[in-house]
């Protein structure tokens, strides 16, 4: 939660700065004349025409200030979209209305190539991008965030006709609340995690949230959340945590190949590359042990090894900020297989 608040605060600060720039920067505008700089004592003047002009000037200046404040206020209310620079309407309530209005058509024909369905997917993706930016989250994380799928599901349920009865609504809120507590626990640890690690944490959280919601609902409400889930999967622009098995001649071959390819993608120096090799030797050895261990689900075991290896690289390779960014972008779980000899 702390992080989310941090995201909000950062967003608010940014919006504040932008607003200040917008309010202050007036290219080609008039010279500002602060009220304090108005000639003192003009009201005592014996010249009624000059007094009238001064009053008129003050009125106009006050009107100008009021207008500036009002423009800034309206812009602030739209600043969520401004942050993402999105000209296409993208708000949860707007999407919720769209889905509830199109639900029957979507259930009848969910072909994503139909313009109306494509439109929903693209709008949902725009909303995900907006939320990620507003909340300071990765695109993979929005789904599990309380402000993501859960908040959207709540708006979809609100937009449905007939309205959900109180009992069903309470059950749905319970599922949302359970997911929120889980998210808070994750958010407290999030900063220390690599992106792969974050993705590995939020994906099951997202699944549990959706399952929890669906279990609490039936009929049209169930259909709506089920449809939202399927559209969410289609709209999701990134899926960190892909598991990839590379065919190699031997375990040593895997370590050598990955030393080359990781050095390239992380943009390591020759010295760092030398230091990477023993880390990958250890990784490959641990993968080999994992292949023999039938008690561990292989991709899960590989995920944990990969995350541990990423942390070891961060701790020992003296990575620059750019290299750290490249490491954070390393979101594939590497595994290997050796084809049987013929």
């Amino acid at each position: 939660m702390k992080h989310i608040l941090g995201g909000f605060i950062a967003g608010a600060l940014l919006a504040g700065i932008l607003l200040r720039l917008l309010a202050g920067g007036r290219p080609g505008g008039v010279e500002e004349t602060p009220a304090a700089a108005l000639p003192a004592g003009r009201s005592d003047s014996a010249d009624p025409a000059a007094d009238a002009e001064a009053a008129s000037f003050r009125d106009a200046t006050a009107r100008l200030e009021r207008l500036r404040a009002e423009v800034a206020s309206v812009k602030a209310s739209q600043s969520g979209s401004a942050a993402a620079g999105n000209r296409i309407p993208a708000s949860r309530s707007e999407f919720a209305r769209l889905l509830s209005g199109n639900l029957d058509d979507f259930l009848r024909n969910g072909d994503r190539r139909l313009p109306a369905n494509e439109d929903m997917i693209l709008r949902l993706q725009a909303l995900m991008r907006l939320l990620a930016q507003e909340l300071g989250l990765g695109l993979d994380e929005v789904g599990a965030s309380p402000e993501g799928f859960a908040a959207l599901a709540r708006e979809v349920l609100d937009a449905l006709e007939p309205k959900l009865d109180a009992g069903a609504r309470a059950k749905a809120e319970e599922a949302i609340e359970t997911a929120r507590r889980e998210w808070e626990d994750f958010a407290a640890r999030r900063k220390e995690m690599t992106r792969l690690e974050r993705a590995g944490n939020v994906e099951p959280m997202f699944e549990r949230l959706v399952e929890g919601l669906k279990e609490s609902l039936e009929g049209r409400a169930y259909d709506a959340i089920d449809s939202l889930e399927s559209l969410w999967y289609d709209a999701q622009p990134t899926w960190a945590g892909g598991y990839c098995t590379y065919m190699v001649a031997s375990a040593e071959d895997a370590a050598s190949q990955w030393t080359e390819s990781w050095s390239h993608t992380l943009q390591l120096t020759p010295v760092q590359k030398i230091a990477l090799k023993p880390i990958l030797d250890d990784y490959v050895r641990a993968l080999t042990d994992l292949h023999l261990d039938t008690t561990v689900y292989r991709s899960k075991g590989a995920f944990e090894l990969m995350v541990r290896t990423q942390h070891r690289m961060m701790d020992t390779l003296d990575l620059s900020p750019a290299q750290l960014q490249n490491l954070d972008a390393q979101v594939t779980i590497y595994d290997f297989a050796i084809p049987p000899k013929k």
């Binding site: 207008l67 009002e70 309206v74």
Partner: peptide, 25 residues
């Protein structure tokens, strides 16, 4: 000053007329 007021009035009207969740860009 009047020109600036007119400009802001026009900007405000445009902002208010815009559907929620959209911005100029």
């Amino acid at each position: 000053l009047q020109a600036e007021i007119a400009k802001l009035e026009s900007e405000l009207a445009a902002l208010k007329a815009r559907p929620a969740g959209t911005v100029d860009r």
